[in-house]
Design a protein around this nucleic acid. Sequence first.
DNA 1: CTGAAAGCGCTTACAG
DNA 2: CTGAAAGCGCTTACAG
Lengths: 331, 331
Amino acid sequence: MVTSTDVARRAGVSQATVSRVLNNPNSVKSGTREKVLRVMEEMNYKPNLIARSLVMNHTKTIALLSGTLKNGFFVETIDSMINLATSRGYKTLVFFEGEKEITDLLDTIRGNKVDGILLSAMKYDDPLFEELESWGIPFIQMSRRHRKGGNYVVLDNILATQLLTKHILELGHRRLAFIVGSTNASTFLERKMGFEKALQQVGMENLKEFIYPIEPITSEVAKTTRMLMNLPEPPTAIICSSDAMALVAMDTLLSMGLKVPEDVNLAGMDNIGITSHQAIQLTTIGHQMNSMGELAVDHLIDLIEEKVEAPVQQVLMPELIIRNTTTNLSK
Amino acid sequence: MVTSTDVARRAGVSQATVSRVLNNPNSVKSGTREKVLRVMEEMNYKPNLIARSLVMNHTKTIALLSGTLKNGFFVETIDSMINLATSRGYKTLVFFEGEKEITDLLDTIRGNKVDGILLSAMKYDDPLFEELESWGIPFIQMSRRHRKGGNYVVLDNILATQLLTKHILELGHRRLAFIVGSTNASTFLERKMGFEKALQQVGMENLKEFIYPIEPITSEVAKTTRMLMNLPEPPTAIICSSDAMALVAMDTLLSMGLKVPEDVNLAGMDNIGITSHQAIQLTTIGHQMNSMGELAVDHLIDLIEEKVEAPVQQVLMPELIIRNTTTNLSK
DNA sequence: CTGAAAGCGCTTACAG
DNA sequence: CTGAAAGCGCTTACAG
């Protein structure tokens, strides 16, 4: 491996000068600079960023703690987030929630001296929040946020769910099912509130039995969907608190031989890419997911570079996207 | 930030001893060790991995250079790859192809002293191959491989496409269209060969006009699909050289008011998750994608840790998955 | 404008 | 078993 010392020797200058042409080129006389540059080229010298990190006390890397990519929501955000980070000169260390004990992960993240952390799967009461706060490096939450606030960019989930539920109600549906993740995540918490609020607005506030809180995993969604449709009076519309869940519900419904929306209406939330496919055409609530991820990264880097002050808290407006899985009940 | 020196001072030992309890605990007397451990705990000491990397000359991180997640294929591999890396104690630095000049990326990857590199989007003639070889660190290719070989785990793409094409031919189809990525990627190259070979086996070898090489992007796939179906004699079956392309083709067909498979058969390749959805049910060729990614990571780490010798070259057997988008022509 | 030197936080021979 | 010391490859005051 060729080091700055090797370059210095060959160029007949001190190692410090080599370092300077990299970090503060104007501080070295142009003749010297040219020579050093030439030698670097010749020797194919690349600075050791690890060594630089040690002295600079920053690594130009951010850690991304994401939910599993099995959930399409996280997929669409991660792509744009990493790309934005790259374009702003940051590397991205990616970890998925659920693998390994989080504590092990934390030690390696901390030990690696990342400059900032981006979390897309923060729980509402996660002790991680306080832990991270104690580290003294910037972190930002996207989509899900902690009870204590901090930095985040999220959707207005309450409004989103109200909008969606209102749409279903206006279609004439009165027997609804709202399948919501029981995970202690702000998204689900708030979406549940939004649903209740929408019912309230039409005087149906005590219909709590419409709400089905479950583990947001495939098997549970499938089970619940089957159970619902086997009810003596099955719902005429099912609202899922995420597109990932709605996709599973649709899969289940179809495999039961039921048609959507003819036999039952269905809606999701998040507007992940596949929902717009002609074969799916799921009614949902839009997020501008790419921009949510990008906003979060942008803010995080601004925080790191102290271009902005904490807390940065951004709430995005939802947009109802009506497609083919919801229709007027009085068909 | 608390360092090993701080711990040493408080514990009344030398800094070297602190380091030893971390790296070679048995070499320090149990009494001393306990005390040091206790102080570490008290002070919440976490070793600086950057400093360690500098002296150890390894970082316990691998770089993952992936194709965009807009393509579902890369999504399913990346999740399992990162998780496997994590569980083997490696961090993953993720970069997406196409962003920024690759050269910039290379300098940062190289400068960061990753222990190994995993590429899922290597071109068949990519000069990157030689560049990486010159670095002297292990790298492995998955799915797509370079003309020169190296380490890889790939699908038997020729056989895969033969199998799939044979299936379509057996259904009675004689007017086929094979939409293949024109990218200089081994997958597309080999899939084209497989298609030709299958035609050859039924004596249709000179029907080169069945092959439509295009940029594997949404707009091109859509355009080609539309063009095909507007032919005086449109194909009775369209084979796409990836599920990502097939999904676009299906979307286009449906939006043209055509039905699959009634109006035209359709098949993809890769068996990405969504293809098994009841609303899609795409006939395709299976990959065991998770295992492909995991195998690649496993091999890479084995290579890094010198548990195995280069080259490791693994070719996975394909599996035909017949679903609802292909049917007997004589319906 | 440039060099000599200190220092970033570790690991690991080398002595004892 | 333990400490003192060298060294990993950089950056950046400090002198000159």
